[in-house]
């Protein structure tokens, strides 16, 4: 287990370093970052001042090391627009995005796992077809369009839910559904496939012969084994959702990280964008790391193989 842990951890660190250097290289995508910052009218002297202030006059590897050292210490740079540390703003907004992501995940799992189980009990039944239809439709629906359509019905026509904002739990209902719906197909298919396989196994037949109740058989005996791959998929999808929440947060004006990212893009606030990409990537790396460790702990075959 320790060997697996070390191997997996070093992989995570290496990926994090690569992501950070890619994020850093965004600085040079537009050519000279000093010109981008100073604008068209900046004189050569202005540009020189900017270069010295932001350290663009040093060699690139040195700049990267400096940037990375500061980032590791929690200093993700200074926002060009807000003129305050990027990290302050990010940590103010992060909880909102996390809350949205968690709500969306709970919604997705609550919909897809029972549906996947029920679909697996009777393959090819009406319910199975219904579940598959939901999966196929879910994958084809553009999340922003789904969000807008919900907004139109629930907030404008029926006035059940608030249109946008992030002040109460009611504001999170539609965004969570819009964000979570997109991942239900994958989770449902995997649950269904896992259940189909487990339900064929010998120990389930034994349990059934023993007279275990149907509910207990499905949810206690079978699901426990079928759910293992779903755990890591859910972790991966949670990471994707946080990254994808930019679209949903923009539509519903939810004051989270995604909305901040969109605002920063509008303001050409590069340090803020880089920091958000970095934070979300690191979060994803940590998430998949813990999911893998959890899986290895649940299933010894993984840590040995």
């Amino acid at each position: 287990m320790l060997a697996f842990l070390l191997k997996r951890l070093s992989m995570a660190v290496l990926v994090a370093l690569t992501v950070s250097s890619l994020t850093f290289s965004l600085n040079f995508l537009s050519g000279d970052p000093a010109i981008a910052l100073g604008g068209e009218s900046a004189t050569e002297a202005d540009l020189q001042t900017i270069r010295e202030t932001y350290g663009y006059d040093k060699p690139i590897p040195v700049q990267y090391i400096n940037w990375l050292t500061r980032a590791v210490q929690g200093d993700l740079g200074q926002s060009h627009y807000l003129n305050q540390p990027v990290s302050e703003e990010i940590f103010q907004r992060l909880p909102t995005t996390m809350a949205l992501g968690l709500c969306a995940l709970v919604f997705a799992l609550a919909l897809s796992i029972p549906l996947g189980v029920l679909a697996a009990i009777r393959p090819n039944s009406l319910l199975d077809r219904f579940a598959l239809t939901i999966a196929v439709v879910g994958q084809a629906m553009p999340s922003f369009w789904f969000g807008l359509t919900m907004m139109l019905w629930f907030a404008i026509n029926w006035r059940i839910l608030p249109v946008s904002g992030s002040d109460s739990w009611k504001h999170f209902v539609m965004p969570s559904i819009a964000l979570g719906y997109y991942i239900t197909p994958g989770v449902m298919r995997l649950t269904r496939a896992g259940m189909l396989e487990v339900l064929r196994s010998d120990y389930i037949r034994t349990a059934r012969a023993k007279g275990v109740s149907k509910f207990s058989l499905l949810f206690k005996h079978a699901l426990r084994n079928a759910i293992i791959p779903v755990v890591s998929l859910a972790a991966v999808q949670f990471g994707f959702m946080l990254g994808g929440s930019i679209v949903i947060e923009t539509i519903f004006a939810i004051n989270g990280l995604g909305f901040l990212a969109w605002e920063s893009i509008q303001r050409a606030d590069l340090p803020m964008m880089q920091a958000i990409v970095l934070v979300l990537s690191f979060f994803y790396i940590a998430l998949t790391f813990f999911a893998d460790v959890l899986n290895a702990w649940l299933d010894p075959r993984i840590r040995i193989g």
Binding site: G243, I246, M273, Y284, T288
Partner: peptide, 11 residues
């Protein structure tokens, strides 16, 4: 996989 697609594309 660890880089958020929409965000990186937008940036």
């Amino acid at each position: 996989l660890s880089m958020p697609v929409v965000l990186v594309a937008l940036a």
